[in-house]
Structure formats: structure tokens, C-alpha cells
Amino acid sequence: MSTKTFKVKVKRQDEAASASYWQTFDVDYTPNMNVISTLQKIAAKPVTADGKDVAPVVWDCGCLEEVCGACTMVINGRACQACSTLVDELLEENPVIQIEPMSKFPVVRDLWVDRSRMFNNLKRIKGWVPTDGTYDLGAGPQETQEEQDLRYAYSRCMTCGCCLEACPQFTKDNDFMGAQSFAQTDYFNSHATGKLLADERLDVIMGPGGISDCGNSQNCVQVCPKELPLLTAIASVGRQATIYSIKRFFTGKK
């Protein structure tokens, strides 16, 4: 019995500093495969289509249900999560599936990239609610379901980086923060206690790599897998920045 196979072209890179190259693999087809199970099959039997034994492909993943954000890759030219990208749908587009690492972040190896810049930005914008500690001090501030709706939408950001991969302003060697940081700024600034650090966040957002570098091309919102209201965030943070700079002007604060 001959099993059906399909071709997968993977962009590989052995080390952070080395050059990239392509390899093609024939993978046995089974129904309902996703890109992760494809990579698992390659890892279990790392032989290229022309029969060469090679080192298994390395990638990053976690939850396998599109909630941890780890497995972002560029698949058939689009940045998306490998776990929720289905092989059947890709094969309808093209008989060869093409997988590359994200291009806006340094490669660790093969499809695994280093996204620590995203986590560092969360530190820069003081992405937390300044509580008084873990002591028992009663409930948090009451909020309406409408307020929860917006904050919940922001809180689903899984730091996947799709918005940054698609953003024309965000490059490997500049310091633009991008939509992810703007959305998280709005998230914390719209919480009753989180607001207490709003000015400090805006100081960062108005600094180098901040909101004024956003060209408003709106690529980010189109690719966000969690459908964050990124344009709302950009507009809202922009508005807060304007008000804050007027306030800064009148209070003489620099």
C-alpha cells in the first residue's frame, strides 16, 4: 500500500550567526494534520526528500491549542501559529508547504526565534497593576461588563508577535515597540488601579520607538490571531499621549 505524502520546504539555520538554507521533506499524510504534527513527523524521521539524513528541525511550541503564543512561524508567507494551521487548508493553496522562522526576530535555531524584546517591552511600559502586595485587603475595584469586555479583549494577547512581524515600522534593528505594547498600555491604563502608573507608561510610549513612529498602516490588526482591537488601542493611547503632553506643558514637567 502506498501512503500519500506531501512536500514541506523548511528554511533552516544552524546557529544564530550562521547563514540560512532550505531543505525539503516528504511527509506521510494523515487526515486532520496541523503544522506541528508535520514537524513532529520530520523530527521523528529527519530524512530529506532526496534521502539525506539531517539534523531534526528545531521549533518552539507549548499548548498546541493557540493560546500560549509560542509556535508563531511564517507559513506559506503568513505569520501564524503552527499548531492551529491545518495541513489540508495549506495543501489547497499550494501542493508544497513552506515554513520559515519569523523574520523580525533573531533566530536561535531553525524555526525558533528569540522574542525577548516583546517581554522586555512589557517591563518598559510597566505592564502591571501596582498592588499593595499579596495581603488580604478585600476585593478589587468594581467594573461594568462593558469595561470587562474591552479589558478581556486586551488580556487575550499571547505575545505571539504576529502584529510585529506584519508591521512595516518594526524591524530587527530599530526600537519601535509596536501594537502589542500599545495594546497592553491601554489595558493597564484602563484599570482603576493600573491607571496610577498611566503617566509613567505614557512617558515611555512618547519616547523613542513609541507611538509617534506608528505609520497607521493597520497591518497589525489584520493579522492578530486573537483579534485584539489594536486600532482602538493605538487611537486611545495616542489620545492619552496628546492630553498628557498638554498637561506636561502646563505643569512644566519634562
Binding site: 497593576v129 478585600g138 476585593a139 478589587g140 467594573e143 461594568t144 461588563q145 469595561e147 470587562q148 493600573g194
Partner: peptide, 12 residues
């Protein structure tokens, strides 16, 4: 209560 104070968006 503590998680609420930390800003978890619990449904309302």
C-alpha cells in the same frame, strides 16, 4: 479578591 486586585478581568 487578590486576583481581582491584580486586575484579572473576571466576568461581571
Amino acid at each position: 479578591d487578590l486576583l481581582d486586585r491584580m486586575g484579572v478581568p473576571f466576568n461581571r
